[in-house]
Simulated assay, not measured.
Amino acid sequence: MPLLEMKGVTQRFGGLQAVSDFNISLEERKLIALIGPNGAGKTTVFNLISGFYQPTEGQIIFDGQPTAGLRPHQVTARGIARTFQNIRLWHEMSVLNNIRIAQHHRLGYTIWDAFLRTGRFTKSEGNIDAIAWEMLEAMDLKDAAHELPRNLPYGLQRRVEIARAMSIRPKLLLLDEPAAGLNSADVDGLIKLIRWIHDEFDIAIWMIEHQMKVVMSLCEWIKVIDFGSTIAEGTPEEIQSNPVVIKAYPGDDTI
């Protein structure tokens, strides 16, 4: 059974059709990419999977169950985590608390438990702390645990965002342009990090990315969309030589 299926998914915003008849079957532990020119509809696809939008038409099935009607936090609880093109961290909270807060769906206690400091509250908070510190260590962020994210270099902020997503123990990690804004050294580090996450945690990863160095270094399969419609899909080698894809990226010799 595929981990994620999208069948005939279409998304309209008034008279604008952002995604048209989108289909994909993503197996467990795969590492794939969704690419296309700016405005092609890539982030809309991720927003549909994440529950930010409900498709106008079609069906999304994750881990054997439809996601129709689920809110974003419910999708997250099912095992889908994501990052965003523009880093979204709480800059007034420490790195540690940024990761802890991702566990809100696992709290398991009431406001009265928190007020009275019951055993249920203490146990739940202890588990959350343990998960957060484990992820900080795994992502080499322990030294930054008590720093505010805004005081960290951009590359480390991106790592914190990925660590926060990974702290929910996802089955599928969605990365929306993880290399955006990174310098060449940070991009090399990102490639190593994503490869390590994929191997270490044995999860599926689906990324949107404009830097072809990242895509071609990591991905087993690439799907290409333009104006909301699929124009090609295949291995990195097939995509690099596809004339339809090359035409969609005028003047870009990295394809």
Results as ranks from 00 to 15, higher is better:
residue 9 V to S: 01
residue 9 V to Q: 03
residue 10 T to G: 05
residue 10 T to F: 00
residue 11 Q to V: 01
residue 11 Q to T: 00
residue 11 Q to W: 02
residue 11 Q to M: 12
residue 12 R to F: 02
residue 13 F to L: 07
residue 13 F to A: 11
residue 14 G to V: 02
residue 14 G to I: 07
residue 14 G to M: 01
residue 14 G to T: 08
residue 15 G to I: 04
residue 16 L to Y: 05
residue 16 L to D: 03
residue 17 Q to L: 05
residue 18 A to N: 00
residue 18 A to M: 04
residue 18 A to Y: 01
residue 20 S to Y: 12
residue 21 D to H: 11
residue 22 F to T: 04
residue 22 F to N: 01
residue 23 N to G: 03
residue 23 N to Y: 07
residue 24 I to L: 15
residue 25 S to P: 02
residue 25 S to N: 10
residue 26 L to K: 08
residue 27 E to W: 06
residue 27 E to P: 06
residue 28 E to Q: 09
residue 28 E to T: 06
residue 29 R to T: 08
residue 29 R to D: 09
residue 30 K to E: 14
residue 30 K to G: 10
residue 31 L to Q: 04
residue 31 L to S: 04
residue 32 I to A: 05
residue 32 I to G: 00
residue 33 A to Q: 12
residue 34 L to A: 04
residue 35 I to M: 14
residue 35 I to K: 12
residue 35 I to G: 11
residue 35 I to R: 10
residue 36 G to L: 09
residue 36 G to F: 12
residue 37 P to A: 08
residue 38 N to R: 01
residue 40 A to S: 14
residue 41 G to K: 11
residue 41 G to V: 03
residue 41 G to S: 12
residue 41 G to F: 08
residue 43 T to L: 00
residue 45 V to M: 13
residue 46 F to C: 00
residue 46 F to I: 01
residue 47 N to F: 04
residue 48 L to C: 05
residue 48 L to R: 10
residue 49 I to W: 03
residue 49 I to Y: 11
residue 51 G to E: 14
residue 51 G to W: 07
residue 52 F to V: 12
residue 53 Y to D: 13
residue 53 Y to N: 08
residue 53 Y to V: 08
residue 55 P to K: 05
residue 56 T to L: 07
residue 56 T to K: 05
residue 57 E to N: 11
residue 58 G to C: 08
residue 60 I to C: 10
residue 60 I to M: 08
residue 60 I to D: 07
residue 60 I to F: 08
residue 61 I to S: 09
residue 61 I to C: 03
residue 61 I to T: 10
residue 64 G to N: 12
residue 66 P to F: 12
residue 67 T to W: 07
residue 69 G to T: 01
residue 69 G to W: 06
residue 69 G to Y: 05
residue 71 R to Y: 08
residue 71 R to K: 14
residue 71 R to N: 10
residue 72 P to T: 03
residue 73 H to F: 11
residue 75 V to T: 09
residue 75 V to H: 11
residue 76 T to V: 13
residue 76 T to G: 09
residue 76 T to S: 14
residue 79 G to I: 12
residue 79 G to P: 12
residue 80 I to F: 13
residue 80 I to Q: 07
residue 80 I to S: 15
residue 81 A to V: 07
residue 81 A to K: 09
residue 82 R to N: 07
residue 82 R to V: 10
residue 82 R to F: 08
residue 83 T to S: 12
residue 83 T to Q: 01
residue 84 F to I: 03
residue 86 N to I: 15
residue 87 I to R: 00
residue 88 R to H: 14
residue 89 L to S: 04
residue 89 L to K: 05
residue 89 L to C: 04
residue 90 W to R: 08
residue 91 H to G: 10
residue 91 H to E: 14
residue 91 H to T: 11
residue 92 E to L: 13
residue 94 S to W: 02
residue 94 S to Q: 02
residue 95 V to L: 01
residue 96 L to H: 10
residue 97 N to V: 01
residue 98 N to T: 13
residue 98 N to W: 02
residue 98 N to H: 02
residue 98 N to R: 09
residue 99 I to V: 14
residue 101 I to T: 15
residue 102 A to R: 06
residue 103 Q to R: 15
residue 104 H to E: 15
residue 104 H to P: 00
residue 105 H to W: 14
residue 107 L to S: 05
residue 108 G to P: 01
residue 108 G to S: 05
residue 109 Y to S: 06
residue 110 T to L: 14
residue 110 T to A: 15
residue 111 I to V: 13
residue 111 I to E: 15
residue 111 I to H: 14
